[in-house]
């Protein structure tokens, strides 16, 4: 479980995060949504430890991020899997080497054991027989799957995804969303996804945190988001006519 209390972060005297409080449960897929400039990426980078925050707390299962030294921070990070928006695969390595990378860095496994584990994970993300391809030879969807495989190969406790289905066609995007949700439940990971894709919200949002101007404007699940009367949420989520109609139909039911 990850708990965030009153998180604040400024850049050049401009407050970006103005007191975010929320929690993300183990085995649950949580989504952070909000308009561009709401502070989603900064929030995610604070959670990942890529940005230091000014005030507040980020607690990973009783470990407070700001109260541990750099060495313990590195150890905590070895329990984190991350899927970046652009996949961030190591382009000089094959798909197999990319997925094997966290094992090489953190495990004392023999090459054969590592290969077996990599093949298991690649099979889980439906990428068998792609071991020797370079990331540049893989499609956008495949690259996301490789990034997911690399993120989960070390059996992390926490999984963070920054817009995992951006740039993908709707069909592939849903496949990636469901893959993340299934993996979260299967491996009992605490998953946090940064997204502005409403399909993801409706499909896998077990917990949704809506940010507006650097504060937590609303929290709930995918059913509650249909019923909410919060103006900022409804204006953001139901901005298209299609979603307005879907909401009406849901409320009639």
């Amino acid at each position: 479980m990850i708990r965030v209390e009153n998180l604040e972060k400024s850049f050049h005297n401009k407050k970006i995060l103005k007191g975010i409080s929320c929690s993300f449960k183990k085995g649950e897929t949580s989504l952070i949504i909000g308009q561009t400039g709401a502070g989603k990426t900064v929030f995610l980078k604070c959670l990942l430890g890529l940005h230091d925050y000014d005030n507040g707390k980020i607690i990973f299962d009783n470990i407070e991020l700001n109260k541990i030294d750099d060495y313990d921070k590195m150890n905590l990070k070895s329990n984190i899997g991350t899927v970046f928006q652009g996949s961030a695969l190591f382009d000089s390595m094959t798909i197999e080497e990319n997925v094997m990378f966290p094992l090489k860095m953190f495990q004392d496994m023999k090459m054969e054991e590592m290969k077996t584990r990599v093949n298991e994970v690649l099979k889980r993300v439906e990428l068998e027989n792609s071991n020797n391809k370079m990331p540049s030879e893989a499609s956008g969807g495949m690259q996301k799957r490789v990034a997911i495989a690399r993120a989960i190969v070390n059996q992390p406790k926490y999984l963070f995804c920054d817009e995992p289905n951006s740039g993908l066609d709707p069909k592939t995007a849903i496949v990636i969303d469901n893959l993340i949700k299934d993996i979260t439940e299967e491996y009992k990971i605490t998953t946090v996804i940064n997204s502005h894709d409403m399909n993801s919200v409706m499909e896998i949002g077990q917990k949704i945190v809506f940010l507006k101007n650097g504060v937590t404007e609303w929290q709930g699940d995918k059913n509650e988001i249909f019923r909410t009367e919060n103006k900022a949420v409804t204006e953001f989520v139901y901005s298209s006519n299609l979603y307005k109609k879907i909401r009406k139909m849901y409320l009639k039911k």
């Binding site: 430890g49 890529l50 590195m74 990070k77 070895s78 991350t82 970046f84 652009g86 190591f90 382009d91």
Partner: peptide, 18 residues
């Protein structure tokens, strides 16, 4: 520099690698 702009260095950092 290419690793920096394609977030590969961030990927190393969040894995806990110096």
């Amino acid at each position: 520099g290419s690793m920096r702009v394609t977030e590969q260095i961030d990927a190393l950092e969040v894995m806990g690698i110096n």
